[in-house]
């Protein structure tokens, strides 16, 4: 392009500044907050310090919700992967001219309030709702067993809410696959299942990696599902951080727990990407 050499900077500047001031710098503020002396309060002010013991304290006190968040998010991501792959595969290879419409239908629920959809699950899983009734009639559940306020309900909510984040990247990478490669496998006497395992699945790995990350990361930080569909026994780390900030006002602990969550997630993502062998992806 033959425009002025500075045009690029000027175009990038406003958005870049916004992200620098309100996205990058806040991480430093969070880090500073997490090292505050917890003796202070929001009202009297904190002594800025380097109290690394805060991390040990929150880990001792809140390792359960942290571990629970990672477990729930992990299980939900696996279920999303199975359901999402099925849906993305069906749209990419079996839907014919209905492709675009089906894709729009995948995105459509995403445009309806997250909270209202989650409350709707509360109704579906309610004690006198049709699912509990049906399971009790089939004797798969005892008379007094519940679905609400169990890990099952929270994980079901997470699966539901983050499924589109799995489907879209999976679809994007499945759609790019050259159908002739799968045909070639068939011509060389590979059974359809073998053709899928040896050709389609490996070629869709970038979508699998992107989809699992886009599902796992928000699911691990979510606390809406745990709050609305679970009980205090299903509290996730997000619930704890939120309460520490707004109810207890313990900014130092909240900051430390937030930093810890971010560090754990970044570490897991890096190991995962290395294992999945798609470093060129990022």
């Amino acid at each position: 392009m033959r425009r002025g050499r500075l045009t690029g900077y000027w175009l990038m500047l406003p958005a870049g500044l916004w992200l620098a001031v309100f996205f990058v710098i806040p991480f430093y503020s969070l880090l500073a907050t997490s090292l505050y002396d917890p003796e202070g309060s929001v009202l009297t002010g904190y002594d800025v310090g380097y109290r690394f013991a805060n991390f040990v304290d929150v880990l001792q006190e809140f390792w359960r919700p942290l571990l629970r968040s990672l477990t729930y998010a992990g299980i939900a991501t696996l279920i999303c992967l199975v359901l999402g792959y099925l849906l993305a595969y069906a749209i990419a290879f079996k839907a014919g001219r209905w492709r675009t419409l089906l894709l729009v239908l995948v995105i459509a629920p995403f445009f309806t309030s997250f909270l209202i959809r989650t409350l709707s699950w509360k109704l579906i899983l309610a004690d006198d709702g049709f699912i509990v009734d049906a399971l009790q009639t089939l004797h798969l559940m005892g008379e007094n067993d519940r679905l609400l306020a169990t890990p099952v309900a929270v994980i079901a909510g997470l699966v539901y809410n983050f499924l589109p984040f799995m489907v879209l990247p999976l679809y994007a990478s499945l759609e790019k696959i050259d159908g002739r490669l799968v045909e070639a496998a068939g011509d060389l006497y590979a059974s359809p299942s073998r053709g899928f395992l040896k050709v389609t699945l490996p070629l869709s790995m970038p979508g699998v990696v992107a989809g699992t990350l886009l599902t796992f990361i928000p699911a691990a930080g979510d606390y809406i599902n745990a709050q609305l569909l679970g009980s205090t026994n299903q509290r996730m780390v997000g619930n704890v951080i939120q309460d520490l900030f707004t109810d207890t006002g313990d900014y130092a602990a909240a900051g430390a727990l937030s930093v810890l969550l971010m560090v754990v997630i970044v570490a897991m993502v890096m190991v995962y990407i290395r294992k999945a062998g798609t470093e060129e992806l990022l």
């Binding site: 996205f23 928000p218 930080g221 979510d222 606390y223 909240a254 937030s258 969550l261």
Partner: peptide, 9 residues
């Protein structure tokens, strides 16, 4: 990034 981390930052 998880929303809870961005929000608290």
């Amino acid at each position: 990034s998880p929303e809870i981390v961005m929000g608290s930052s």
